[in-house]
């Protein structure tokens, strides 16, 4: 269904963002294999990124709800692209 497609799409985007940001941060000089410290970094980075996603989701939805209430926004939320 469409509902599942939105959730699936979002999960896929999250995994892609984690891979891009954590590879960028943890594998600065790519060698002939992933080292132990690189794997440890990737695992922790993944957890941190998911935490960041949760923190940002909460902050964003709280703010949108507050703006809706105070009627400062009229349509469709704050302009984000």
């Amino acid at each position: 269904g469409v509902r599942n497609q939105v959730a699936l799409q979002s999960a896929q985007t999250l995994i892609n963002k984690i891979t891009d940001n954590c590879f960028e941060k943890c594998v600065t000089k790519p060698g002939t294999s992933l080292g132990g410290s690189e794997e440890r970094c990737l695992g922790q980075c993944m957890e941190r990124y998911m935490e960041a996603f949760t923190v940002v989701s909460r902050a964003y939805t709280n703010r949108i709800a507050k703006e809706r209430q105070s009627q400062l926004l009229n349509t469709g939320g704050v302009a984000l692209h």
Binding site: F23, C26, L42
Partner: peptide, 14 residues
């Protein structure tokens, strides 16, 4: 190495 380690990282995270 960048290609292979990126794909390793992708598989590791999945």
């Amino acid at each position: 190495n960048c290609v292979d380690r990126f794909l390793d990282s992708s598989l590791f995270i999945i």
